[in-house]
Design a protein around this nucleic acid. Sequence first.
RNA 1: CCCCUUAUAGUUCAAUGGAUAGAACAAGGGACUUCUAAUCCCUAGAUCCAAGUUCGACUCUUGGUGGGGGGACCA
Length: 576
Amino acid sequence: MSIKKKLEILLYKIVKNIVVEHDYVINLEHPNVISHGDFATNIAMVLANKLRKNPLDIANKIVTEFSLKNIKEVESVSVANPGFINIKLSKTFFEKNIKEILFSEIEFGDLDIWKGKTILVEHSSPNLFKPFHIGHMMNNTIGESIVRLCKISGANVEVISYPSDVSLGIGKAVWQLMEYGVEELNNYKTISEKMEFLGKCYSNGTKAYKKYPDLEIRIREITQDIYEHRDTEAYRVYKIGKDLNLDYFIRMTTRLGSVFDSYIFESEAGEVGKKIVYENLGKVFTESNEAIIFEPNEDDLKNNKSLHTRVFINKDGNPTYEAKDTGLLKLKFDRYDPDLSIFITDNEQGPYFEVVKVAAGKINEKWEKNTKHMTHGRLKFNGMKISSRLGSVPLVSDIIDSVNDAVYKKTIESGREISTENSDVISIAAIKYTILRTQAGKNIDFNLEKSLSFEGDSGPYLQYTYARCMSILRKAKKEGLRRNLNQSKNWKIIDLERFLYRLPDIFELAFLNYAPQNVTGYVTEIAQIFNSWYGDTKIIDINDENTGYKLALVEATSIVIKKSLWSLGIEVLEEM
RNA sequence: CCCCUUAUAGUUCAAUGGAUAGAACAAGGGACUUCUAAUCCCUAGAUCCAAGUUCGACUCUUGGUGGGGGGACCA
């Protein structure tokens, strides 16, 4: 149990004796100003209202009781105006905590709050035949971080993606691919080149469809071949393209650090969705203008003003995205029965999914209650030069390449050398950090000069700090120095110790609020405190009896940084 | 017209209803014969507007204003 939980329980019991018959929650927080202590609570002020008493009197009473308990992890408890109770932790606690970090290693910070439960996360869902573009980078980065936070919660986590594998758009691409000739693919060696060619098929197919209306019949026929898996040339060509696309998707997401346990394809979800919509016709859905729609009733609207009428099956009898998503919900819950099902999309789908959720909830309550739709904003490019191979939409690989160029330049300027692999790790860290420092849902200004940096508040800064820790530890080892888990008597607690123990609480907060930026902010603060300490302290000092303990602190810092970055889906480097 | 979302230093972003609103970049000054200067130290600088709830509001409520997104057969 974390020290925070322990103190909260203790305070709860103490307060219970003072105020009977009143509901209250003990809420410990870390004061902004470290001189106020390690924890503070506002309970006395909250109770002052209910009891109509002076908050200072209540606080004093609680503090007196608290002091009698003689908690060895606590050095002092005090009262501050207008009624805060401040708690300072003891040297004993910090010493014990560093031991815990070092013994737990990479498991430090793991929680058990969702142990025994299952969480399903869907993210990075690609449009097959369309390039893996910048929007997917955003989705993948946030999704992967959510996946990892869920794993930290102790839950069993299943990760899936939901590729869009049937649509009129894909029909157009397949038509164009057949026009060019599928054997054209053999002229390209690498998978990126093949993908570039397929991307061209997609955009040129779309253009041709617009320009020549006569094509519609043929392209609709191709689309139908794909829907129904007909044994035709179109379907065979489609299969080749689909497999290539999936292969590429796996490569790209692997490069970014994601692994998927399984896929549910849009084609599957469409069939299932169409079936359940028809099954619930008259109950949940109604017919209107030849289409099947969902219309929210008065109660629905009272609870959620954003609801509106939507078409689930169009007049041609085909499932729309709404029906497909309903089918997807069924497949998710049938296959995984998750206690929580999270999926991540661009926020343009926010109002839309509210409707699907309410409609689906009428078929199965769980589908609505256990589903969390997380939305993210868009990456805006202002002034950032990206040479996109495919028109105006920057591809994920284009972006990473551009950032790689900048990393390479920076490396050369500072007189270092770098491998391609490490450069990639740094570039991806820089991009991911930029996305994850911001609250999901906001648009992000994605600018190499402004928001994407390698200095200060950045991914590479954190990697650099980790590498610095490792470098110190390597040197100590070389000199035959070993860590010492015990403080000497003259050791004075430093700020670093006052932050390292907080990781589990930060993880809990980030998990419960779907807020990776809590971790980003915390780990940046740790790095700043560490670097500041590094700046004014000689860590390896044979004449200092504290050297062993300082080495333990360096190691603990490296563990906390590594684990924090892991939760964000960012890799560390031993040297840079 | 309705709904969702967003507004914090010159810029890009933080801040579970708490105490003196934090960083970074840019600006100015300083620190490498030293454990990695992708670093550190110092200086200056901000809550869109108007009411309300509260002991206390960037945070909650209501009403405005600006940005982004949605609102029947696209996804």
